[in-house]
Design a protein around this nucleic acid. Structure first.
Lengths: 143, 143
DNA sequence: GGTAAGCCTGTACCTGGGTACCGGATGCAA
DNA sequence: TTGCATCCGGTACCCAGGTACAGGCTTACC
């Protein structure tokens, strides 16, 4: 009686019920307490946690990375480890923002009707920075 | 003799040979001319095209989206369509940048040692904007 | 206490984006 | 013309991230 059932959590968080169990297997959600009959009863903050997971995912973090971050953030004195992870992620995010900003510029030019094609533009002084995006990437970047 | 063979293209573009054939099936690469014996002979600008594809992919576009963009960009008078696609993408990119910026802020706070956990922070006035990222998302956003 | 809705485990399947392997044909150089 | 590297098509497999289904048990409510 005490806690949310899978259906409630799934609906409120906007995920599939199967996904909850999948996340449990993957270690993203702790195993919740069970009713006498074996039904899962989730704490109320599970919804917020799922929102964290979804947000992180949309930003390009894999489930493994999210699990790591949550794990690091949940320990007693995680500062050093968490700090390093955070620094790494910040660098990664900065690269992504730079790439996104570059492509945004290209798209803006397209909208300004100065280009008539992304690959075979016939306009003069066409920058198409598209072609150079990511060429400065420092390796090891997952596809 | 005239054109690059699969191995050359693959090596210069840094992709697998199988990937070239995969892209051909997916419509990202036009079917190249063949030698008398049936071997593919690619035009030289294929390398640049592959770089475009890889750049777009890193920025979160699916292969289908890339194919669409290339297709739209390749037509004779695509301006209206290409323009609209570009506007849509710009909006999407702006959302991503906003989210990335928000999470970057959270991570910065973590680095500043003001938080000891991403989910159960005990510090006072903890913002954890993480929790609110993406809550303003206008639906229809692919996972 | 009956019954429908909801949940259980387990297993199989799906999509996206590739990769690997096979047996056979080609390209090219000595 | 022989021989080795390369390429061919076809099929099967891989990983991530889920999703679906089957057959059975639990809960909640009348």
């Amino acid at each position: 009686m005490d806690g949310l059932r899978t259906g409630e959590v799934a609906e409120q968080a906007g995920v599939n019920i199967q996904t909850l169990r999948y996340y449990e297997r993957r270690g993203l959600l702790a195993e919740p307490v069970r009713s006498n009959g074996g039904h899962r009863l989730y704490p109320a903050d599970t919804i917020a946690l799922l929102n964290v997971i979804k947000a992180a995912q949309r930003l390009g973090f894999t489930l493994d990375e999210v699990a790591e971050l949550l794990d690091a953030g949940g320990r007693r004195h995680p500062s050093a480890d968490l700090r390093q992870r955070a620094l790494d992620k910040i660098a990664e995010i900065d690269r992504k923002i730079a790439d996104l900003t570059a492509i945004r510029g290209t798209l803006t030019e397209v909208v300004d009707a100065r280009c008539d094609s992304l690959t075979n533009c016939t306009c003069t002084d066409c920058p198409i920075p598209y072609l150079t995006i990511g060429t400065t990437r420092p390796d090891g970047e997952p596809a």
